[in-house]
Structure formats: structure tokens, C-alpha cells
Amino acid sequence: MRNIFVIAKNTLKLEVREKILYGIIIFGLLYIFFTLFLSDLVLKELPMVKSFGLTGIYFFNAIVALFLGTTSFFKDVDRKVVYFILSKPVSRAQFVLGKFFGLCMVLLFASVILSVAYIGLILYEHGGFDTLGLLAIAMQFLEMALFLAFAIFVSTFSSSLLSIVYTSGVFFLGHVVSTILDAAKQIGLGGMRFVLVEILYYVFPNLEKFDARDLAIHAVAMPFTSFALAVAYAAVYIILLLSAAIWIFDKKEI
């Protein structure tokens, strides 16, 4: 446990020194700032302002997660820094978990900065604190944590560039699998084609479960069961992905 913490802390320390992280955060902040002007175009309607703001945070956090998840773990292994770490009393499982939690902390760091800007924007424009918006951002964070776990899993057997391709693919499919399944049911798709759609649905994570933006935009509270199910779904998926990553990394010749 201690080694997981040491590796996580070190990962956080290193990644927050990366200029590219600040580049992404600065663009995210600029986007939120521009939302001030966009809100004039939509007559300062609160749902539209919230929609712009939350979508911006989601988009820039996704870039941070993609960048961190596909490079950090891979670089440590590819550049052989891992030799120093694994020749010490550190198991490969501890290394994988340490990297994951460290990257989650970096993501949290970026999320907090963007969230503060967003909350400030809503306060400035409408004088109210957007609690539901914060909940939507927390749900987005869960999705990004799952995204990171997937990127680390892919990094255990492929290059950084391929990880970007695979992770982006899963990100896209993860947002459409539930729509595809619903559509297949509606049109009465049957036989092997429906089975295939079902397989797709169960193999790829259903990232729509974490989308609480629409609810937050229209000031509708998320039902507790939906929230609890999403948390459990993310936890199970992350545990499965990290277990697979540990299993593969344990067998990898480094």
C-alpha cells in the first residue's frame, strides 16, 4: 500500500511539471472564459451557459485523460525508468496501481481548476452556486478514471500511438453502444446481428451512464440509484481493467 502511495505521489509530482498539461488547462480556462460571450448570444439563458461550460470541462478533461493515460505508463516502461523501480521491493501490481492513482490525482488537479472557473462563471452570470453542475463534473471524473484505466491497460501491450487510437475508439464506442442497442431493439433486429450488438454493448463500457450534464443543465437532481449504479459500474470496470493490466504487465519481458 505504501509503495502505491509513493508511486502515485511521484506520478502527480512529475505530471504537474509537464507544460502540455498546463497548455490543455489554459485552453480549457479560455473556453470557459469565452462562454461569458457565448452566453450573450443565447440571451444569458442559464441552461445554455451551463451546457457550454460543462461540455468544455468534459472535453478538456478527456484530452488530459487521453494524454496522461496513453503516455505516462508507456514512457516509464519504454524508457526503462521502471528498472529502477521494479528492482526495489515493488511489485508490478503496485506499480500499475500507483500509476493509476497518480494519474487520477493529476486529473483531479485539472478538474478542480476548471471546475473553480466554471462555478465562478455561473456565480458571476447568475449569482447561484451550481451544486448539480459539480455533481455532473464528479460523474465526468468517474468516466475519465475509467478512461485512464483503459489507457493503462492498453499501454501494457501496445505503443503510445496505438494506445491513443484504441482508447479514442473505446471512448467513441462507449458513448454510442447504448444508443445502438436501443435502436436494435426498436427496429426488432434479430438473430446473430442482435447478438453481435449485445456483445458490443457488454464488452465496451457504457459511458453514457456517467452523463449527468443534461440533468444538471435543467436543474434536475440525479436519482440516487442512478448515481450509485454509475459509481459501482465504474468501480467494477476499473477493477477489471486494472486486473487485466496487472496480469499482462506481470508476464511482460521488460
Partner: peptide, 20 residues
């Protein structure tokens, strides 16, 4: 040896030591 390039020598030693 390859290192974490953005760490200082002192930080790297501390990190390695903390793994014990």
C-alpha cells in the same frame, strides 16, 4: 540508466529511497 528527466538528482534519490 534512464531517469525521470524533470526530477532533480536529490528528488530522484528520495523517491528511490521511499520505495523501501
Amino acid at each position: 540508466p534512464y531517469f525521470y528527466e524533470r526530477m532533480t538528482g536529490m528528488e530522484f534519490l528520495r523517491f528511490c529511497d521511499e520505495l523501501f
